[in-house]
Structures are given as structure tokens and as C-alpha cells.
Amino acid sequence: MRNLKAGQKHPVEFELNGRSVKGQAEPRMLLSDFLRHELGRTGTHVGCEHGVCGACTIRIDGRLARACLTLAAQADGTQVETIEGMAPQTGRLSVLQAAFRRHHALQCGFCTPGILMSLDTLLQQNPAAGEDEIRDVISGHLCRCTGYRQIIDAALEAAKSLQKETADA
């Protein structure tokens, strides 16, 4: 077994968006805080810190996770993906991100990184996702600006473009 003592910092290492990263964390440090304060990746937002709002949603080993309900120590040795890894290159948005922009699917932008991670995961797993599946996934997030309609419109459009891309390929 591996025992990390309270009150001391321990090395934590994982793959973040395809690159190996390292930092120091106390056992009680949340992954959300580790990403933001230790690694300086502030794309993952922190809202409620008890798993309800969804702002800190990321992927660990390919599955969705609330970074605020995960210890940095739990992420050691895993593959972590955050919003910083979504755009294909600097200055270019992913299909889903571009659809968000077109449909005004964000206003203040606080909830956006988490919602994008969830919808990106849904569309990867199920490119044929319709409004029911999209609404179901968004139920794991809170947005206080948009009323969700624009988010759903953006996701539907992104699904359509991604399906077309697959069909053309």
C-alpha cells in the first residue's frame, strides 16, 4: 500500500491533455485546486465544491469526473483531460466550441468548461445523440445565464456537423 501522511506534501504525477505533469499536494488537496493552483490550469472552474453545479467537470481515464469530488492523490497515474485540451490548436475552436459561440450558448462563461467537457464526451460516445440525450447530460450542470436553450441548440448543431464529417470521411 501507499501511505500519504496528512499535513505533508507528496508528489502527484499524471498525464494532462496528453502531456506528463508533476506537482506537490497534501493528501486532502482537491484535484480542482491542484489543477488551478499547483499547475496553473485555470480553465477548470470551481463552483459549489460538492458535486452539484458541474463547473469543474473533467475527464479521468476517459470518463467524466467532478474535479471537486476527486483528490489530487486519486488522480496520480491517471490520464486527465480538461477544457485546455479541447481546441485542436491555438486560435482554432473545436466544432462544439464553435457551435457554442454561434448560438450564444454562454454568457458569463462560468459553467461553460464543464458543460463542454460533458457534451464533448457525449458526442464522442454517441455522435447520433438527440435532444433527449443532450438534455439528460446537461442535467448534471447548472447554468444561470442562458436558460439552456442555446446550449441545446449548439449541441444539436455540433452533433449534426460531426455526423456529416463522419459521413464525408
Binding site: N3, R28, D33, L71
Partner: peptide, 21 residues
Amino acid sequence: MKPPPLDYIRAFTTQDILSVL
């Protein structure tokens, strides 16, 4: 909204769990 100070033990076998408990 942060956990209290605590030890984190990563168990690799059932025996690890049983002995800590």
C-alpha cells in the same frame, strides 16, 4: 469547502484494507 487534513492510503490488496481498518 475543503476536506479536513487526512492520510490518504492507496490499497492494492484486500489485506491492505483489512489491516488499516
